[in-house]
Write a protein that binds this DNA or RNA. Structure first.
Lengths: 398, 398
DNA sequence: CTCGATAAGTTCAGTCGCCAAACTATTGGG
DNA sequence: CCCAATAGTTTGGCGACTGAACTTATCGAG
């Protein structure tokens, strides 16, 4: 059993610091008095904590508010966009991406470097990654911003407890300690480095920047190579007991169906991933499929429809099991959204038990292929916003 | 968004009180010094908190420990079995069950009253339940124990946020506020009353009393009427976003298959629930099926095997999605365990991706039909153990 | 223009729970 | 009999929040 920690006054301050910052993050432009009202803390306490947050340049004082009626005006507080940034890194089979995201979740800088990483040794790939990270750090230095944390998105199973990348089939890696490697190779010694599965982090990006506002519970699916899924429950990424959660590709959706690499038959992945759709539509690649769809070719439209059924079958089971009211389509599926959404919604409505009471949303991700890097950076920013006191303490002694 | 609460010193004490009690619960017979070591608190703090817990009769001083070597002996501390009890209530279609469980999780008293509750009005049934609760409270009074909380298991969807029983198909109920009704009818005014889905609470009972020691992550399935499932993740009951989680009965496992009441085809429930097995085995009821199995009748054995496949298909999807390493068979499935476990394990081993690395346990519940009531009572006890300070404050002013 | 009403933000003594360290109590061994 | 070792208690101090009084800022009415 993981032992919970004893609490002391410092714990109280940590909690309340996070509470105050959270209130400011949630509604920008709040005054100290407003924060006090929304958190339940006293004005005195809020003042102290805001001073602390401002000193660490997490919060910015934006001058007096507009108000009508008598009384002194409050000072607008908001997250400081020039405060610490989160560094996002994505290691994919064909590229390495990096970006810098500010506290408000805005992407302030990003870069993608093509790289043939498939079946390359970890050392070689991590060398490339270290270079890209160095460039990002240089950019941050040029802008005079502190990098407060880093997140790395990887295409494989990440063990939550250890941070180890257990298996990455497409890279051919096994048991690689990515954070340790990057800390050593790329001058990230003083920064917290998180790793996460690429599909899970894409889901998190969707929550943070997707603009489906108010939707705090959904399943995010994207179908590039295989099918990646990520769960967001109650505004938090849910990644299972050991962090392996969200494996959806091998859902058995057809007792017959083609054989899969996993040994079973009728896996979702073989029926609804990008490759399966292209094959059925007799399209050589995604652009040509999209072209065919736009000109309304029956074969292409039918291929997408055919993928919607098994996808809907699998997702409806997830929705029934976890009681989630929305599905977000990302990656390739986002581009197919106009043709995919309706048949998918039909299938879900038919199969989800709660559908008659609360209709199911099938949403489209606006983030495209950048979702995973953004999610990685956002998860780094999250660690600061969710626990500012630790960040302040760390930057104080550094 | 649900607003988190501000923290103060009282929050610290609450947290540490729970920490100390948790340490004692986890390893009975610990001394104050032992608690201090395992929690990280100082001996001074532990002493204060233990006094507090002892004054509320949550913790009992059991005299000096045995130790070898020099030094003063510590005093053994353990959960007080004569401290507050949890009251468990189960409202089923054919009976009402009640029980009293002490802080250690032992059932100290229980009673089952047959009752034809199917399709009866809530008022009528709750009248019966109130009577059973009154009898349980009288028994508690006779024993001189305080009832510190109550849990009610119901066969339907319970909304976590409101505690409302949204739908109970087998009872024919809709939107019933069970806690409020019971508080009003059964003299439970001063006691916290929790409601939960019967399958989820059975899973919780399994965690608490099932004796699969060390297993803190599993799916619990039982097949009486329909198929009920409950998830335990990291030693906590997981009941989904709104508390509707664990719906497994309508997993689509066969694209053909018989039509189901939900409108779809090939639902797990129609293929693997008790009724389906009996029908296939041509057995009139469960006892006769068990008899046939014990005398090795091929038709009966084949029927159970036939149910194992779809069950395994559905469960493997859950295991892949949530990364859980064990399945516990309860209710009817527990009785079929000798014939069901092996084919089920085979199916799971074939389909679960992580199986080659960590084998999947298929365990048998020893709790029988009492699981749900016990789980209800245990969940009531849990609220005390997980937050003793609130209990102490409440009993102090009462 | 001044004064009163209203609201934001600050200051300060008070309270509460934890901590560190010193102290008392108990036990086995030389 | 005294010492080393361990359990538990007492005491003074500290940090973080609270409540209430106080200062600052703004508007509108006379």
């Amino acid at each position: 059993m993981i032992h919970p920690r004893p609490a002391g006054q410092h714990t109280v301050r940590r909690h309340n610091c996070a509470l105050v910052l959270g209130a400011i993050a949630e509604s920008s432009g709040l005054s100290r008095a407003g924060v006090a009202a929304s958190t339940g803390l006293t004005k005195a306490t809020v003042s102290t904590l805001v001073d602390r947050l401002a000193a660490a340049s997490l919060v910015r004082d934006e001058g007096p508010q507009r108000r009508d009626g008598p009384g002194r005006r409050g000072t607008s507080l908001s997250l400081n966009p020039d405060g610490p940034h989160g560094l996002g890194v994505e290691i994919a089979v064909d590229h390495v991406a990096t970006c810098l995201v500010d506290l408000t979740g805005q992407v302030r800088w990003s870069r993608v470097s093509p790289a043939a990483n498939r079946a390359q040794s970890p050392g070689r790939v991590l060398g490339r990654v270290a270079k890209a990270v160095a460039a990002a750090l240089a950019e941050a230095a040029r802008r005079g911003v502190v990098v407060g944390g880093a997140g790395v998105a990887v295409p494989g199973l990440v063990e939550a407890s250890t941070g180890l990348l257990r298996r990455a089939p497409n890279l051919g890696w096994q048991d690689v300690d990515v954070p340790a490697e990057l800390r050593a190779r790329a001058g990230l010694e003083s920064v917290e480095v998180l790793v996460g599965n690429e599909a899970n982090l894409a889901a998190y990006a969707e929550l943070q920047a997707g603009g489906h506002d108010g939707v705090r519970d959904f399943v995010h699916v994207s179908g590039e190579i295989g099918i990646g899924a990520g769960l967001v429950l109650g505004g938090e990424l849910y990644d299972g007991t050991r962090g392996f959660g969200g494996e959806l590709g091998h859902f058995p959706v057809s007792s017959r169906g083609p054989e899969c690499s996993c040994g079973a038959r009728g896996c979702l992945e073989r029926l609804a991933a990008q490759e399966a759709i292209l094959e059925r539509a007799a399209a050589p690649d995604l652009p040509s499929l999209l072209g065919a769809l736009e000109s309304g070719e029956r074969k292409a439209v039918a291929a997408v429809r055919a993928a919607a059924r098994p996808l809907g079958t699998a997702l409806s089971s997830v929705l029934n099991l976890l009681d989630v009211p929305a599905v977000v389509l990302g990656g390739t599926y986002a581009r197919l959204h106009p043709w995919l959404a309706e048949p998918l919604r039909e299938e879900l409505t038919r199969r989800v038990l709660g559908a008659p009471w609360s209709p199911i949303d099938v949403l489209c991700s606006p983030l495209g292929t950048e979702a995973a890097v953004r999610g990685a950076a956002a998860s780094a920013v999250r660690t600061i916003v969710a626990d500012p006191d630790t960040f302040i303490a760390a930057s104080g002694r550094a």
